[in-house]
Design a protein around this nucleic acid. Structure first.
Length: 269
DNA sequence: CACCAGGAAATCA
DNA sequence: TGATTTCATGGT
């Protein structure tokens, strides 16, 4: 399949740490799973080339949010001097529209962890729970597992967090709809009730799973970036960094965060 | 608010 | 090869 995708940077999008189910291969293509379909993706100038069966163009456009207008984000990036380099180098980076459960599970796994290892855990979860399919197991499937099984595939102390959260989610079917309907502050409060979900991971889930773009996850990298660009490297708390960002960028804060994160990790900042 | 344990793999020195 | 770091949370 060949999808017209102007203003899109596949590599920045899939390699900026917002999703753990896609990995870059030697030849520069990305391999991963969307829904219950395995696929290989690559970009050729203004086109996204998709090697997959049973996946619609509409599903891919929705997942990569290709019809979302990035102009307001670019306006912020171009008007804020410290962000100019990021604007030049990372244009086309988009925030993916992930399934809420996949975002929640993925970012519970991400706690004090590194991305390569998270990807490994993600792949082993798919293997472990696949019954001839390749989809990420839904909450009820993981809820039926055990802590020791999850530890064996490398979750470490995150095993009981994911297990308990899966059990809570699978016994409360309407929860994601309530979060979707709630405003940012209320939704964040609700998410933090789940084991393994604090302020940072709640923000990731709201941003990547619910498209609540005022969410501004603050991790060690973002803290470094904010300190360096706006506070002359002075010490600043995560909470202060978030307040600064949300006041400055409002409902574009989440997008700016993703550009900052990828920018600081790739050495642009 | 500060401190520490939790697992294990990647990365650093 | 030993030490540090890693998209933090939860408990104290």
């Amino acid at each position: 399949m060949r999808i017209k995708a102007p203003d899109f940077n596949l590599e920045a999008t899939l390699d900026s740490g917002q999703v753990f189910g896609f990995s870059k291969k030697q030849d520069g293509t990305f391999e991963g799973v969307l829904g219950n379909r395995r696929m290989v993706l690559r970009q050729e100038s203004d086109f996204l080339k998709v090697n997959a069966e049973g996946v619609s163009e509409a599903a891919l456009r929705r997942y990569f949010h290709l019809d979302y207008d990035l102009a307001p984000v670019y306006r912020v990036l171009s008007e804020d001097a410290p962000l100019e380099k990021i604007h030049q180098k990372l244009k086309g980076l988009r925030i993916i529209c992930q399934e809420p459960w996949e975002a929640l599970a993925g970012f519970i796994l991400s706690a004090n962890n590194n991305i390569k290892r998270i990807r490994g855990i993600w792949d082993r979860i798919l293997q472990k729970f696949s019954n001839g399919s390749v989809h990420f197991p839904d909450a009820s499937e993981i809820a039926g597992s055990t802590e020791s099984v999850l530890r064996k595939i490398g979750l470490g102390y995150r095993a009981p967090f994911l297990l308990k959260t899966a059990r809570m989610i699978s016994s409360d079917h309407g929860h994601f709809n309530r979060i979707r309907a709630a405003d940012y502050a209320q939704a964040k409060e609700e998410l933090i009730r789940y084991p393994g979900v604090g302020a940072k991971i709640a923000d990731c889930v709201l941003l990547f799973g619910f498209q609540k773009y005022e969410a501004f996850p603050v991790d060690v990298w973002i803290l470094r970036a904010i300190k360096k660009l706006y506070f002359r490297n002075r010490k600043i708390s995560e909470k202060k960094a978030q307040e600064f960002a949300q006041k400055r960028w409002k409902d574009r804060a989440g997008y700016i965060q993703q550009y900052l994160y990828h920018g600081v990790r790739t050495g642009i900042i």
